[in-house]
Design a binder for these strands. Structure first.
Lengths: 343, 343
DNA sequence: TCTTAGCACTCTTGACGTGAGAGTGCTAAG
DNA sequence: CTTAGCACTCTCACGTCAAGAGTGCTAAGA
């Protein structure tokens, strides 16, 4: 495949930009007029035909303008989006919002989703950071009533997990406290496997709790467990491509269906942090995403804990804005995770 | 306003049922044929005209069938929906799902939302139970690194809150443990106000933490803080009324916009548990809900902690199914809350 | 008094045809 | 390589028209 001439690249860029703006096929004359190109519409037509032959543009029908193909968007994203940074104003606003929130994952996650969706003007998803290999830090058993006990487990990096459990016979708070203390001494800093090995030698209560703790730590590791925060789902419903409802349904399904989303995130993102990945039209791997694009990134600290975040939208989206929003919010969250996990 | 004759009630019920099923205005002949009424279409027409005069039905245009008005739906819900219980099969499936889940709010809430939306076949929302007046139960301060400390607070009823905090100067784990112990002795069973009063006499670290704890307890009480779980947003997008996108946007906004939803829940539901409330077309109080209906209930234990749950849909929804689904899931959650909070 | 058959009337809906407009591709000249 | 000109194609908006659905009314029957 031959190179594009600089003018052809410009034209491709302008077609994408104009189509993203107007949502209707863009013609040669409109292009020349809107961007005051120094060539005539006939010249543009030749280039458009060339771009179409190369598979970057397509024709809804004979007498309509051009529309970018998936390949066209990919070329655009790969070589033509300028590396737009978020305006300083937006950056400080975002930073300020995080600064004001309580220092707590449960505050940060929905805030991140909200900020991301508002900045990108698209539906956003954020997953909770998952420890790469969570380690035991602290355990507390708290008697609530009768046989019921509340278990609160703190893992390294500030992950807090809680669970109710029923004992076969009541145990008083003092005994629970002793059991907690012993496990805390015995298991500090260990991962799930090691805790399980040591569980065997312990008295019944402690052994049960230890096994439970190992299970919780393993769950936390599995990655399939983390909550997903979403926001801005409505942001996209006014878009003309979703006027029919059928397409809207497709996009919503992606955002809503946990397993699908988890699968895509796991497949598309490697372990490295900070790299923004753009999936256009499912990339042939996901049929459900054929009409959508995703802009994703992993955030966090590679060796300790990472999560994923991103926006979902129609293929006709403002990739520049989406990419810079995702990159910036991922950076902010990475900093927050770093602060929490450094210990 | 006069009474409806029994036949008029039947006809109103059938119009609602048929319109909910077919989504298009229902005419006299169709009604007679579909339900094999023992009267002629002309008779039905007379009754339809009467129902229209009373404001229960309306006419999109001269030669179309009838459509229920908001008043019509209200009459239907108030007097004509049979008290349909969920089939045993569905009830056991639901109970089983809750039984299988881990005993933990973070598992129950999304499960409840998912189950509710699947049972009612509508978007569902569930709020976390909020303690009526949360009481201090247990505190743990855990050093992570340097100046940063993780605070884990357990309130009565199994509510666990966590927060990071920065100290002006580093404090080692031992000192943190001592501070936790002292506060645990001093504050056990107290509410926010009392904790704050006692904070004054304490050394700096403990005093600061106590004040923070009071703040967290107050936040937990405020009701505006609780997370909202949602599910099944896409369930409704195929419905013909949302083919245009504009209406879909309205409904989605209700489900997504925290403050709006919180406001409606707070206004519409009293403190009592278990009563199912049906809001049709915003009831004149909420303009945003003009095209929607909500079926809501409060669950939990009145004196200890309650949350809200419900489904949102177009006014043309299956109220019978929605009401029984909401009632049943509210019951299940109430039981779970009762088990957790009894201590 | 209530019910019903019959009928005229109204309004929507889809099909069809038409003209304007937009945009293309091609050709030939600069 | 660029550009003006032109024929060609296709959509879209508009108007017309007939079919169909459903109503309201009237008058007769139970």
């Amino acid at each position: 495949m031959e190179e594009l001439t600089p003018r052809q690249e410009t034209i491709l860029r302008l077609v994408v930009r104009e189509y993203v703006r107007s949502a209707s096929p863009v013609g040669s004359r409109a292009l020349v007029e809107a961007y005051e190109l120094p060539v005539s519409s006939a010249t543009v037509r030749n280039d458009l035909a060339r771009l179409e032959a190369l598979g970057y543009l397509s024709h809804p029908h004979t007498s309509a303008g051009r529309v970018p193909t998936l390949e066209g968007y990919r070329y655009f994203v790969g070589r033509l989006v300028g590396d737009v940074a978020l305006p300083l104003r937006e950056r400080t606003t975002i930073a300020h919002q995080f600064y004001q929130a309580r220092r707590d994952l449960e505050q940060w996650m929905p805030l991140a989703a909200s900020v991301l969706s508002q900045t990108a003007r698209l539906p956003a998803v954020v997953t909770v950071p998952q420890a790469v290999e969570p380690h035991y830090k602290h355990l507390q058993l708290i008697s609530t009533h009768g046989h019921t006990v509340l278990l609160v487990l703190v893992a390294h990096g500030g992950i807090v997990k809680q669970q109710m459990l029923n004992l076969v016979e009541p145990v008083d708070q003092e005994a629970l406290g002793k059991a907690s203390d012993r496990l805390n001494q015995l298991c500090a800093g260990l991962a799930a496997d090691e805790i399980e090995t040591r569980a065997d030698g312990l008295p019944s209560l402690e052994s049960d709790v230890a096994r439970l703790v190992a299970g919780i730590l393993r769950d936390a590791e599995a990655g399939m467990s983390g909550t997903i925060y979403r926001d801005g789902l409505t942001a996209v419903l006014q878009q003309p491509e979703f006027s029919e409802g059928e397409k809207a349904h497709g996009l919503m399904r992606i955002v809503e269906e946990r397993s699908l989303l988890k699968g895509v995130l796991a497949d598309a993102l490697g372990p490295e942090v900070g790299l923004v990945r753009v999936l256009i039209g499912g990339e042939g791997r996901w049929d459900e995403l054929r009409a959508c694009s995703l802009v994703l990134a992993r955030y966090g600290v590679s060796e300790y804990a990472t999560g994923a975040l991103g926006v979902v939208g129609p293929t006709r989206m403002s990739y520049g804005r989406a990419i810079s929003a995702v990159r910036f919010v991922a950076g902010v969250l990475s900093d927050l995770v770093y602060d929490s996990y450094a210990g």
